[in-house]
Each structure stands twice: as C-alpha cells, then as structure tokens.
Nucleic acid binder design. Structure first.
Lengths: 234, 234
DNA sequence: AATATTCTGTAGTAGCTGTTACAATATTAA
DNA sequence: TTAATATTGTAACAGCTACTACAGAATATT
C-alpha cells in the first residue's frame, strides 16, 4: 500500500516503513477503516528546528512520527532547559492527549526534517471502541513508555555525573542505536549542550565527564557520532 | 454491592470505596461480567513491610490497591535505594505487566496494612477485547501515570536539593494530600530517610533542606504529618 | 576564502552536597 | 518503666559540581 506521506514528504526525508497502512498497532483493521483513518490523519512536514507543539498548548492531537527525530523538552521556572525524551520514526508523540491535563506538558521540536501524521482524540477513541485490539496495542505502547520513563528517573537519581551521563547515553543508544562492529552507534550527533539538557548537568561538567568516559574506554567518538562499545542492544 | 474484599480484609484496613464492583474503569460492565471478574481476582491481604512483588519477579499480574499504601522502589547497582512512586487505594500497581520486559523493574512494598486485588494479563486482555471502553479507561490511566512520571523526571533534574525536595513533596502532596485549613496535608508520615530515597539525596542533606523549608514557611510539621501551606490542590 | 558562529576544552574559585561521627530526641519493645 | 531502637539534629571536612572566563577548534555562512 502506497502511503500519502511519501508524496508529501518528497525525497529529503527518509521515511520509516511504519505508517498507518502497515503500523503494527493498526494491523487488524480492515482496509476500509485504514483508508478512512489515513485520509483523516493530518500530515505535517516539518524542517529542523520547527516545533510540532509547545508546552502549554491544548493537547487534542497525538502524532505518529513517520520520519525524522523529535525532541521533547521543557523549560523550568528557573530558566534551565530539560530534555525529557527524543522520539524517532515509528514512535508516538503527544500520548498524554489521553490524560486529564488538557495541555501538553512539554514542547516538541524537530531535530531533523520530520514527517508526522496527526490524529485527534475523538478519532482515536472511535477507533478503539470499534477495534479493541488497537486499544490493547496502545496500552502496550504506553506501558513501554512507562518503563522507559522509569529508567529515566533512575538515571537522573544517580549523583555522580560521569555515571549519570553514561546511563543517559545508554538509554539513548538503546532507543536510537544501531549495532556495529565496534559497538552500539547513536545515529545522530549530540552536542555537549544537548547532553547537558538530557543529563541535567552543566555543559562544562559534561565535557569533563565525556573526557573521563573516553579515557575509561566506555565511549568512542567517531566523526560526531557516539559509540558505546561495552553496551549490548536489547 | 458488597465486595468480597470486605469480608477478607476484616476491620484493620480502611478500604477505599474503589473496587471491581464500583471502580470507574469497570463501570460499563454488565453484572455477570463483574461477578466473573471479581471472583477470579486474587485478593491478597498484606501487613506493613510485606512485599507484593520484588524487582526481577516475572510480571504476569497487575494489582488494584483496595486499601493501604504501597511503595515502589528499586535498589541500584551501587546499593543506593530509590523510591519511584507511592501508590494508594484506588491506584493500580504493576501496570508494566503489559510491556515487553517480562519482569517487574521495581519492588512493591507495603507501607501500611494493605489489601489488593490481582488480575492476570490474559484476564485483562479478554476484558478489553470484550469491553473496549475499559481499554480506553486504562489508556487514560496509563497516560496519567506518564504525566506523573514526567513530573518526577523534572523534579529530579533540579540540582538544588531544597528546591528538589520541595518539588518531590508537592508531587506527593498532590497524590496523597488532603486539603485542610492550613494547607495540603500529606496523609502519612515520611522519615527523612524516606524522603532521601524519593529525592535521591543523602539523609543529612534532607534534614538540612527540611530545616530551610520550615524556616522559609514552605512546609509545616504537625505531629509527624507534613503540611504544604502554599500549595493548591489540583 | 574569509568571517561569523557554534562547539569543545581548560582553569580557578565559590558553593553545595556527601560523608562521617556523635548527641539528642522520639518511638517501640520488653 | 526501662531498655533498645529508630529518627532527627548538628558539625566539620572532603569532594564534586556550578559558574565564569577565555582560547582553540570545528562548522556554517557570506
């Protein structure tokens, strides 16, 4: 099944094979439903740096990332920035649409050229009512997200920055990594400032910790990409 | 409808009105389903300090907390303990049963005498397939949990211990607090060590920070219970 | 190619937190 | 009640991190 996304995206975004037509979540829908859903879904094409939504916006829509990468971050009262997660092709963004809050608690900003499909709450609710198995799949997805966030909480609780940074890198590598002969490679560049936002530490402290991790052989830096040689991918 | 729990629990546990028979999640089930489900549900009565499950145990069961309070915590490799969450009557525990992991990532230990109802994965899946609206409700619950964990990540990212502690206390108060004339009262005692596990800080540092928060008028201590006078409950 | 901008590396200092030790108080058990 | 245990409070010091400042390297822009 050819997806509308491909026509819209053009050739500058490498699309994931994950789409409404073939996403595992929707695999038991009949073709009429799929057609209806994929026509309703609001496709958006975003450039690097563009935001999908900002913290505080009313949360009425949930997005499937078709291609690219999206950073979920938040600015705290004291002005410090915190990155909560980085989502990639095949992931959902805005899953808290279902919660009571009513607004997005974070901002979603594209790290690369990105393509998304958006769905409204009512669209999703209808879908789940009609196809309970889709509900089960979403439950599984949300459950995985909870596990991941639990890991994140654990990482941040580690006092020592070097250890904390390594845990953060491991988490990122597990989500965005590819196995190579040298180890797990994180598929996109991260500046020390980015890592600071992910780790909750000062940029300069990250530089120090990176130096120590390199020296300890726990990370390798190869043309802007990070490799974790001692990590096994799940 | 009289719940089986009441007969089992006896009089030493104050039960929440939330049960299979009247839990909002199950409100659209017909009486035959409710009967079947409540008979299958495995009730457990636990004393203070007893564990519902330990980190690493196979995750095949999810629990509804009928009465009492359960601490979800984890021991890190370096031996430090971290408390991820405290659940109360009406909450679910073990929701990661749905995820791929296969085992509980945390231990669940009772802080008080506690009563739970357990459900197996297959039981829940059947239920969702038969009653899609139940699936939607669970999606909402999980979604709320994600929001809460996001807050938790945010709290832990704050470097300053006094501020971090106050955020942790606010989170706890929002979950377990009751509005009083003086402010929001946390309904159960927390030692400085407990707060250390919640905050990811040393016990002595908690004592220091508590002193500062008291002095600043941000918290009041009244016979073992904490009051946050400046907090508004959601 | 030249310039501007972003990113990385290094250093020094101030401030905060962890750690250890011990006293004082409160709670629980005998 | 008394003894045992758990909790809180205080102090001193070591160690780590934040903060600031600046230089060099790498990228991006013109």
């Amino acid at each position: 099944m050819t997806c509308l996304c491909q026509q819209i995206a053009g050739k500058d975004i490498e699309l994931s094979p994950t789409c409404i037509g073939n996403l595992w979540i929707f695999k038991d829908l009949d073709s009429a439903d799929i057609k209806a859903l994929s026509q309703d879904a609001l496709r958006k094409k975003l450039v690097k740096g563009q935001s999908l939504f900002l913290q505080g916006d009313p949360a009425n829509e949930m997005f499937l990332v078709k291609g690219g990468r999206i950073k979920l971050s938040k600015v705290l009262e004291d002005g410090t920035e915190l990155t909560l997660d980085i989502r990639k092709a095949g992931d959902f963004v805005g899953e808290n649409m279902f919660s009571e809050e009513g607004q997005y608690p974070v901002s979603a900003v594209c790290l690369e050229a990105t393509m998304t499909c958006g769905f409204s709450r009512s669209q999703f609710e209808e879908l789940v009512m009609k196809h309970p198995r889709v509900g089960l799949q979403i439950i599984k997805t949300l459950s995985d997200r909870i596990s991941q966030l639990t890991n994140r909480v654990e990482s941040l609780a580690v006092a020592n920055i070097e250890e904390r940074l390594y845990r953060v890198l491991s988490n990122v590598a597990k989500e965005h990594g590819a196995q190579s002969s040298q180890g797990v490679v994180i598929q996109f560049p991260l500046t020390h400032e980015d890592l600071g936002f992910l780790t909750g530490a000062h940029r300069v402290s990250i530089t120090r910790a990176m130096k120590a991790l390199k020296k300890a052989g726990k990370i390798i830096l190869e043309n802007k990409l990070l490799i974790l040689p001692t990590l096994k991918i799940a």
